[in-house]
Structure formats: C-alpha cells, structure tokens
C-alpha cells in the first residue's frame, strides 16, 4: 500500500502516524511525506493522511488556512477518484473545512486543551478503517486537542446516523469536548474519507500508549 502523508507548516504528528503505519507493516519506502506547496499526489497512492498539529498556527478557525493550501486541491480530486483519505485531529478539522466531510469542529466545551485517554466505542465496522473491529467494542485511546467539539445541523447529524457514517464515538460518560452525538470520528458518504479526533496512531506501541489503536491500522492495511 502506498501512503502519502501531507505536511503543512505547523503539522506535528507526521512522525507519529508514520511510526504507527510502519509498526502496522507498511514499508518505509511506501510512505511519502508531501509538503503542502506541492501540487501533485504521487501516482498510485492508496491512502492520503492528514496528520495532527496546528497547520498555519490555527490562528484562524482550525484547519481553515490549510483547507486552501495548494495540495488540498489535489487531495480533493484524489478523494473524488476514490483514494482513501484519513484525517486525524487537525486533519479532521481540515477535512471539515475543505468540505470533504460535513460539519465543523468547535472549541471544546471546557474551552481548554485536553490531552488524556478516553473510552471510545466502535460505532460501525462498515468501513475500511474499522472492518477488523467489532461494532460496540470499547477501546481506550488518547485525545489531544483544543477544538474537537463536533457540530453540525440537526439534519446532517440525522443523516450521519441514518447512513451509518459515525465510525467512532466517545463513551457517553467520557466525552472530552462536548461533541454532538458523542462523535469522535465520521466517514463521508463514499465511505473512503475518515476524520477522527482521537490519536489512534498514539495507541499502537506497547511501551508508549498501548496497542488499542492497532485494529484501525490492521483494518486499513489488511482488508
């Protein structure tokens, strides 16, 4: 599998996702970091990752600047061709800002940055990102964000539910940011573009963070 990791100025979890993918079995030679100024995604890319961080400092709405960077035109057209796109944390925010996913991520209800482990629930395994997971299964993984409070119009939320597009939810008593329907991750209607707030890439190493997130990478790579 060939994977392109997009690096914006201010991206800071590119090495975390890289390590998680290598741990999951991706050859380092199949991972490519793509600088935001570039204007092409390498041919035969199977998965594009938008990692976490603070693209352009996130001084405007999180992800808003990155959504307009040159490389995002290419990401959008790749997604239209059916290339899988995974946005984590800031990547999720960028996907929402660029219109690849519906809704928006508002400031956390507590108005503070929160970095802690949360209890997640696999809301569906009907996705290339969760197919190796059991629906309803609980796992613990960290979040680290200031703006993870997912918000969308009621009809959008209803549609996400009706079409089984909510992939990960926070346990009802462990929602760290106040997101609607306890949403932690959603997929687009093509079921190829996933945005999620929790850092499952920081939960793939038995010595640092545990291995609860491995099932997602297993799903991506070993469908």
């Amino acid at each position: 599998m060939k994977i392109a990791i997009i690096v914006f100025p201010g991206t800071n979890r590119e090495n975390d996702i890289r390590a998680a993918l290598v741990t999951a079995g991706v050859a380092a030679s199949n991972l490519q970091l793509i600088w935001h100024r570039e204007t092409a995604i390498p041919a035969a890319t199977d998965l594009i990752v938008l990692p976490g961080g603070f693209s352009y400092g996130d001084y405007l709405r999180c992800g808003a600047m990155a959504a307009h960077s040159p490389i995002m035109r290419e990401v959008k057209s790749a997604a239209a061709r059916g290339v899988a796109v995974l946005g984590i944390c800031n990547g999720f925010q960028i996907l929402c800002e660029s219109g690849l996913l519906p809704g928006v991520l508002l400031s956390n209800q507590g108005l503070k940055f929160v970095c802690r482990e949360v209890e997640l629930e696999v809301a569906t395994n009907q996705s290339i990102y969760s197919r190796k997971m059991v629906k309803g299964h609980r796992l613990r993984a960290p979040v680290a964000h200031h703006d993870g409070n997912y918000f969308a119009a009621p009809e959008v939320l209803a549609e996400l539910q009706d079409r089984d597009q909510i992939v990960f939810k926070y346990a009802a008593d462990d929602n760290p940011n106040g997101s609607a329907l306890n949403i932690a991750g959603i997929i687009d209607s093509s079921r190829r573009v996933l945005g999620l707030m929790p850092h499952l890439e920081n939960a793939t190493d038995p010595l640092a963070g545990g291995i609860a997130g491995r099932a997602m990478f297993d799903s991506i790579l070993n469908g």
Binding site: G52, A144, L207, A208
Partner: peptide, 12 residues
C-alpha cells in the same frame, strides 16, 4: 491534561 504530553509517540 492541558499539555500534550504524548505528541511524538515516545512518552513511556
């Protein structure tokens, strides 16, 4: 909890 103490993935 207000500090990202995990970024980098090396926090043992």
């Amino acid at each position: 909890q207000q500090y990202d103490h995990l970024v980098g993935g090396q926090t043992v």
